[in-house]
Computed example of a mutant assay.
Amino acid sequence: MNKDVNNRHSLTITSLLTKTSTSIVTLTLLLSLTLMLPNQANAASKEYESYKRIKLGMTVTDVAKSIYGKSYKSHLKEENNVKTLNSKFLVKDIQKDYKYYHFVYYPKKKSKGNLFEYRMSIIMKTKQKGNTLYVVEKSYEPTKPSSKSFYKGKKPKEGTTLTTVDKSVSGKGLGVFVSHYTRDYSKVGEVVGKNKVEYSKKETWIYYNTQSSTGKTKYSLPFKYDYKKKVYILN
């Protein structure tokens, strides 16, 4: 378990400028989206509501409708023989066998070098030899994540469910998460090396910041969703 408060899936340009996006922490799930996403994360936020509406497997047109509503057509364009979003992107990879776009939304702040950090990320890719973009990854970071304290004598333990950890910290559970990330390449395929394509199954992660009862020890808690047990489990 990583006790470093730095989130290995944070939405920064330095952590996202690779097409595999394995370092970030990104739903067509077996459960409904409301069961998969915690309610604590800025539930009233329009940005978060927008994030929840976007599902893995959506086409680029579906995404445009979800984000922009009736004006969605004005946010689409044709290029490189594929329909895509006319939106800010970090990475665009146009290959003979596939097209890949990494879009970002909601800048958090302006930093040195004119670089921005973004709270929402959407990655879309075509199937091999295809020309339709599908959502394969997405991630979100709330503006004000919580940092709850464990009760005296309590500390995080790998294999524990999120519900159990909820009861081990002060206040109303773990509160607002640091980041949420989900991905699914099972139908589209992910290019991981030269002439190598993997069809990895969907996975979902959620991260929380916590600390010991004294505040001296900081924890970053990564929970992975178990689709069979239908619970988040601390890894």
Rank of each mutant, 00 (worst) to 15 (best):
S200I: 12
N195E: 13
L221H: 02
S212E: 02
K216P: 10
S186L: 09
W205K: 06
T204V: 11
T214S: 12
K218P: 14
G193L: 06
G215A: 02
E198V: 12
T217Y: 10
S220E: 14
K201R: 12
L221Q: 03
S212Y: 00
K194M: 09
T217Q: 13
Y208Q: 00
N195W: 09
T210I: 02
V192E: 11
V192T: 15
S212G: 04
K202E: 14
Y207P: 05
Y219A: 03
E198W: 10
Y207Q: 03
S213C: 07
G193D: 08
N209T: 11
Y208P: 02
T204L: 05
Y207K: 02
V197T: 08
V191A: 14
W205A: 05
S200W: 08
S213A: 13
N209S: 11
K218Q: 14
S213L: 04
L221I: 05
V192Y: 14
Y199E: 04
E190C: 05
V191N: 15
S186Y: 11
S186E: 04
G189N: 02
V192H: 10
T210D: 00
G189R: 00
Y207R: 03
K216H: 09
K218S: 14
Q211Y: 02
V191F: 12
I206K: 01
Y207A: 08
G189I: 00
T214G: 05
E198D: 13
N209I: 06
K201A: 07
K218Y: 09
T204G: 01
G189S: 08
V188Y: 04
E190P: 00
K218H: 14
K201H: 08
K202M: 15
L221R: 01
S186W: 06
Y219S: 06
Q211F: 05
T217V: 11
S220V: 08
Y199G: 03
